[in-house]
Amino acid sequence: MSIQHFRVALIPFFAAFCLPVFAHPETLVKVKDAEDQLGARVGYIELDLNSGKILESFRPEERFPMMSTFKVLLCGAVLSRVDAGQEQLGRRIHYSQNDLVEYSPVTEKHLTDGMTVRELCSAAITMSDNTAANLLLTTIGGPKELTAFLHNMGDHVTRLDRWEPELNEAIPNDERDTTMPAAMATTLRKLLTGELLTLASRQQLIDWMEADKVAGPLLRSALPAGWFIADKSGAGERGSRGIIAALGPDGKPSRIVVIYTTGSQATMDERNRQIAEIGASLIKHW
């Protein structure tokens, strides 16, 4: 067993022997301040990774656009098919120029040779490549099948209805392509620590998230040296922004954090800054 596999296998073990965790309302004060600064709703939840206990939450059962955070769930569904012998990570998928959609920095470079399922998941999570996500959605049967996968996990809230990039439209009061912070946090925890996926697939999923290259201005910008984070960000229309993450000190994750916002007129930089400040408060009061 590799060191990384050992780390993920012992996530519940280490967490069980940690000192009790206590909620700190100071972080919620910052979440509410972010709402004021952005002029928009902000949803927040913080779960203990081992027990699933909610440590703090704000608007945990209000719907927010998922945006690209759905790509972690998508690759979880792909990995479940791999575990069941219905898919192979090494299978190569070929596609054409007509398949390319807006923001496809990886797939646009491989029109000639195609990409493997493993490479597509890596591109979808680490670079948020939209064509990679659409190609992977095709392998599982489309958005409705991802929703069905989530329902089978016990998540009857999260739903995907459309493809990239239309799913980022974020129309107010439109339930399409949305989740709730509580539902997303619980589902992410199941994917990373539950028995739904094999140990190898859980490790692969967290490795992809740990290698995320496009979430630097968010929670990662607030992390002290030595902290662990595996995350996936999302951005959408109407001032929408979000991030889902597993993080913790001492090089291992111990909490799940989900943050979503929508309806702001603020710039992307300002949305990023507010999420980073929430992260800084979380870490300060850990």
Score class of each variant (00 low, 15 high):
Ala148Leu: 14
Leu167Gly: 05
Arg59Gly: 04
Arg91Leu: 05
Val157Glu: 12
Arg238Lys: 13
Ala266Arg: 13
Ala9His: 12
Tyr44Pro: 00
Leu120Arg: 00
Ile171Thr: 14
Glu175Ile: 14
Gly279Met: 04
Phe17Ser: 08
Thr261Ser: 10
Thr27Gly: 03
His285Tyr: 12
Arg63Thr: 09
Ser2Lys: 11
Glu46Asp: 07
Arg92Pro: 08
Tyr103Leu: 04
Trp208Asp: 05
Gly114Thr: 04
Pro224Asp: 06
Glu164Gly: 00
Ile140Ala: 07
Gly226Cys: 09
Phe22Tyr: 10
Pro60Asp: 15
Arg63Gln: 09
Leu49Ser: 07
Gln274Leu: 15
Phe6Gly: 06
Arg159Pro: 00
Tyr95Pro: 04
Ala215His: 04
Ala183Cys: 08
Glu46Trp: 04
His110Lys: 12
Pro143Tyr: 03
Glu277Phe: 08
Phe22Arg: 10
Thr107Phe: 02
Arg255Phe: 02
Asn130Val: 01
Thr186Leu: 15
Gly142Met: 02
Leu199Arg: 12
Lys232Phe: 00
Ser2Arg: 09
Asn134Trp: 02
Met127Val: 12
Val78Thr: 07
Val8Tyr: 15
Leu188Asp: 00
His94Ser: 12
Ile229Asn: 02
Thr178Trp: 01
Gln265Ala: 14
Leu10Ser: 10
Gln97Lys: 14
Pro105Thr: 06
Glu277Ser: 10
Arg241Gly: 05
Pro224Leu: 04
Leu219Ala: 03
Asp48Tyr: 04
Trp286Gly: 02
Ser281Ala: 15
Phe14Ile: 13
Asp250Thr: 11
Pro143Phe: 03
Ala225Thr: 14
Val214Leu: 07
Gly194Pro: 11
Asp231Thr: 04
Glu210Val: 14
Asp83Arg: 03
Leu219Cys: 04
Ile171Trp: 14
Val72Arg: 00
Glu175Val: 15
Trp163Glu: 11
Leu188His: 04
Ile206Arg: 12
Ser254Arg: 11
Ser68Ala: 00
Ala185Gln: 01
Ser281Lys: 14
Asp174Phe: 03
Arg271Ser: 09
Cys121Pro: 00
Arg162Cys: 06
Ala211Lys: 12
Ile256Glu: 02
Val21Trp: 05
Tyr44Glu: 01
Glu56Gly: 13
Arg271Glu: 05
Cys18Tyr: 06
His5Val: 08
Asp269Trp: 10
Phe17Glu: 04
His151Ala: 14
Gln37Thr: 12
Val214Gln: 07
Glu166Ile: 13
Pro181Ser: 05
Gly226Met: 07
Asp36Glu: 14
Gly234Val: 00
Pro249Glu: 08
Ala235Gln: 04
Gly263Phe: 04
Lys213Tyr: 09
Asn168Gln: 07
Arg176His: 09
Lys144Gln: 13
Asn152Ser: 14
Tyr95Ile: 11
Ala276Gln: 12
Gln4Ala: 10
Ala215Thr: 06
Thr147His: 07
Arg220Lys: 06
Lys284Gly: 10
Arg176Pro: 04
Arg162Leu: 05
Ala266Cys: 14
Ser240Ile: 01
Tyr260Arg: 00
Glu237Cys: 12
Lys190Asp: 15
Ala40Glu: 05
Leu28Pro: 05
Lys284Cys: 10
Pro20Gln: 15
Val157Gly: 09
Glu119Thr: 06
